[in-house]
């Protein structure tokens, strides 16, 4: 089970769940609704390194493509092959089965700079996206 209260969020609508020194990345329920039906997900290769805010993955709907940015800096250690096989998981289960990749966190302090769920909800309400 996921616990939104324990997860962190970005202004570009990624969620970030920390497990030890590894962080899992996906997109929020709000984002999947905006994107509508996801038809394709392109994930980074294992071992690739990204700095905070760099484009690490891409999701496509029929009429649009969206970049998924790395919430914090790190090296890719896992990629969710289920979601590339069945992109609808992003819509059906954005916080669990629809995760994209996990990275090894380089600098823990970057995690603290991310929004809490409460902040994120507020952020969506103000419509600043």
């Amino acid at each position: 089970m996921y616990d939104l209260e324990k997860m962190r969020f970005t202004k570009t609508h990624e969620w970030f769940r920390v497990e030890g020194n590894i962080g899992y990345v996906g997109i929020t329920d709000h984002a999947q609704k905006e994107i509508t039906d996801v038809v394709f997900v392109e994930l980074p290769n294992l071992g690739m390194e990204f700095s905070k805010g760099a484009e690490a993955a891409v999701v496509e709907s029929v009429k649009a493509a969206f970049s998924i940015y790395a919430p914090v800096s790190g090296k890719i250690v896992k990629a969710n092959s289920d979601v590339t096989k069945d992109p609808s998981l992003v819509n059906k289960s954005p916080y669990e089965e629809g995760w994209f990749y996990a990275l090894e966190i380089k600098d823990k302090s970057e995690v603290d700079s991310l929004m809490t769920y409460k902040d994120y909800e507020e952020f969506i309400k103000t419509g600043a996206h």
Partner: peptide
């Protein structure tokens, strides 16, 4: 199909 690869959606990418 696969139109998200194309210029009218992906523009410079």
């Amino acid at each position: 199909t696969m139109q998200a690869r194309e210029q009218h959606i992906r523009r410079e990418k």
